[in-house]
């Protein structure tokens, strides 16, 4: 099983903004409903494999505000 992280947002609009930017990169990710055990932020989050962590951070830096990144 690969190790996963989730990128969380206060607003769904933030998740959509991040998705649009990440889609233009080659980074693999998936939009999933946010596991409620993690947080009660907006209902969806972006899940990706641990090895993408740095490229995700770099791609979104100073473009998108996210509330947290957590390992799941």
């Amino acid at each position: 099983m690969p190790e996963y992280y989730v990128l969380m947002f206060k607003s769904v609009t933030g998740a959509m903004q991040a998705e649009k930017i990440l889609k233009k990169s080659a980074i693999p990710f998936k939009i999933i409903p946010l596991p409620k055990t993690i947080s009660t932020d907006c209902g969806i989050c972006i899940r990706f494999e641990a090895e993408q962590l740095e490229s995700i951070k770099l791609a979104l830096a100073s473009k998108v505000e996210y509330s947290d990144i957590r390992k799941i």
Binding site: V12, M16, Q17, E19, K20, I31, P33
Partner: peptide, 22 residues
């Protein structure tokens, strides 16, 4: 419903709303 539910057509609706915002 845009962004309320997290299933594929809810996310797709949220995308439409976001694209308009963009």
């Amino acid at each position: 419903s845009p962004g309320r539910s997290g299933h594929r057509i809810s996310v797709e609706a949220a995308r439409i709303v976001f694209d308009a915002r963009d």
